[in-house]
Design a protein around this nucleic acid. Structure first.
Lengths: 360, 360
DNA sequence: CCTTGGCACTCGGCAACGTTGAGTGCCAAC
DNA sequence: GTTGGCACTCAACGTTGCCGAGTGCCAAGG
């Protein structure tokens, strides 16, 4: 397999990689993550306390390079981990560092249950970005069942009507509709009373179904009140209510990414920030993590989105009432301190879940 | 005044600047805005169709330099306008270009009256950024009088209550309060009925005042219903309602700024973007324009905020019902096409005002 | 008195060049 | 299997020289 005559034929435990190879890869990646410069054999030998001479290390390095785990930027530079190298590192070689006490405290003290849901998400995102010094990311929780809780109509000028919709306990939406004729305040009041009595607690889909049926049958015995209510409601419920808000996330600390050398190119930076505002690609990627159990890591090109080529994304789903409802995570350079970031994302997801659960 | 023996002593019309000097400064600034490189005497001579030789131009340039209107980056480079040079240019030399037809059309067709107010602001900001290829900016309209339109209470779990507040026609706010005891749905219904009957149409300040009075007097004849309403209301109205939302703006196309050479330095870029997320400084600056009549321009350091040192800001207030309620504008490099940007900002402000006015 | 061509000078940008130092691959000796 | 040694490679860096754009000043000419 190897053209190197000195290749170590030692116990192969992982993808045909010797124990020593693993050990070296681990130290190399750690070192590279620390100072961001290609690691040479001498440096590695020193990091291993001269256990092995630089020459021996060179032999192993040749093997690692052949397996596509490391690469050298040019002939006489040290080695740099490839995406595959990072992958092996995070999958099997990583020793997770426990959370720093201060970090844990600030997480615990700021991610408290109760209060505004939107605010809690924002706080989580900010905390992620502050603690990791990278960009934090929290998707808005999706709502599995969209139940109408309450509806209210208020007349505006020019025949327009302000509709306030409360769905799923505490989520408030509002929109403006243009009915065919002017309605008085009391007509609107009665219409909303009727709708609340009839539909409160029902799912949006069901509301839409029943509404449709009512509009088709029963022309004659329908009184003016009902007609009003139904015209209004049909305008409200034809638009897709829930999706608009679901396709979104809370981003924090994007500017942190500007500090990293791998983002020195303004062009790259721009494409990345454009992706942040477009949201679509990022959301797609995060969707993959929705189904996953626990921490998920995308390294460099693995994500499949070229704007993230030199970035890694560490995510974890978070739950509400036992159901996975969203994803949070961190975006940073491929060369990030995975051993620190992973527990941070993990704990944040747990604390956010706890905060959301106790709110109900 | 001038050490140059050849100094022109021609008619002085503006700040001691000869007619010819003005003419040259104008052409120089226009040229520099076009290609962003120091303009030399030869280039200028060509731009003036050989009216004057390069040598003569050099004499005038020396004057301009001495007056602090232009500067050379180094000994043998051309001249570049200084902030004072730009100022003179935009104040007295600029010839405004009429709006491109396509631009006007897309503005008119997208900034329609009616519909969601938030959406209109967002559209305005996006249009500004798209048409100018810089960053667009629209402050949320301030509300001079904050009148309570409608209030609604909905019970949540754990004794908490969801409060929905409609203020000023169509603005909906919601918050969660924790009353001292559990209230039933009908109690809350009655409480909101009472408050709506009593306070609808009144200003927030007035509501707060009356509430305070009611809480002090009248312990005995206050029935349970009123007590409930007042407990709830006091929790709602102690927080400052309007300010939180007012301190905000809609930003669009920030990433456009990454395309400009003056923003090539990632450090500068970062400080600028941090200022965008912090919002405070930018809002302060925009506040200055609230009182101003029409277009206002801040060039480079004039703004007083060091992050904007190499940027210019072009703003215009916009109105609703004849009252100035907000500011919109554009942020870009000092070297921007003022003759195009100014009419764009101006027209956008007018169209936005029109859209907001007709909504009521 | 203003304008203009000429001239010496300055300085950034660029390419060519050599040097240095870190690192590699291979080999022979242990 | 491990190690020191050796030749080789290559990015990074500083030096050098040259080119071109541009300037300031001056003296001649309208």
């Amino acid at each position: 397999m190897s053209r190197n005559p000195h290749r170590t034929e030692a116990p192969e435990t992982l993808g045909g990689l010797s124990d020593r190879g693993q050990r070296l890869l681990k130290v190399l990646v750690e070192r590279y993550i620390r100072d961001g410069q290609p690691v040479g054999s001498r440096t590695l030998s020193r990091d291993l306390h001269q256990e092995l001479s630089a020459a021996s290390i060179r032999n192993v390095m040749a093997d690692l390079e052949e397996m596509g785990l490391v690469a050298s930027p040019h002939t006489s530079a040290g080695r740099v981990p490839t995406v595959r190298g990072y992958r092996l590192f995070v999958d099997s070689l990583l020793t997770i560092k426990p959370l720093h006490e201060g970090e844990l405290n600030s997480l615990k003290s700021q991610l408290l249950p109760g209060g505004d849901r939107q605010l809690v998400l924002k706080t989580a995102s900010s905390l992620l970005s502050e603690i990791t010094a990278m960009a934090g990311l929290v998707t808005l929780p999706r709502r599995e069942q969209v139940a109408l809780r309450h509806i209210e109509f208020l007349p505006l000028s020019n025949n327009r009507v302000l509709v306030i919709l409360v769905i799923n306990e505490q989520e408030v939406q509002n929109r403006i509709i243009h009915p065919s004729r002017q309605y008085s305040e009391s007509e609107l009041q009665q219409a909303s009373n009727y709708l609340n009595r009839e539909f409160a607690g029902k799912s949006m889909d069901e509301v839409r179904r029943v509404l449709l049926r009512e509009m088709q049958e029963a022309r004659e015995e329908m009184n003016q009140l009902m007609a009003a209510a139904i015209e209004m409601a049909s305008q409200v419920f034809t638009e897709e209510v829930p999706d608009s808000a679901e396709e979104d996330y809370v981003l924090a600390g994007q500017t942190n990414l500007m500090g990293y050398a791998e983002m020195a190119d303004v062009g790259k930076l721009r494409r990345l920030f454009d992706a942040f505002t477009r949201k679509q690609d990022i959301l797609h990627l995060l969707d993959h993590s929705l189904g996953a159990e626990g921490i998920q890591i995308f390294i460099g090109e693995e994500s499949g989105y070229s704007v993230l080529d030199e970035c890694s994304v560490v995510t974890s789903p978070y739950t509400c009432e036992g159901q996975v409802v969203g994803v949070l995570g961190v975006i940073g350079p491929t060369r990030m301190a995975y051993d620190r970031v992973i527990p941070i994302v993990d704990v944040t997801a747990r604390l956010l879940s706890a905060a959301l659960n106790q709110a109900h």
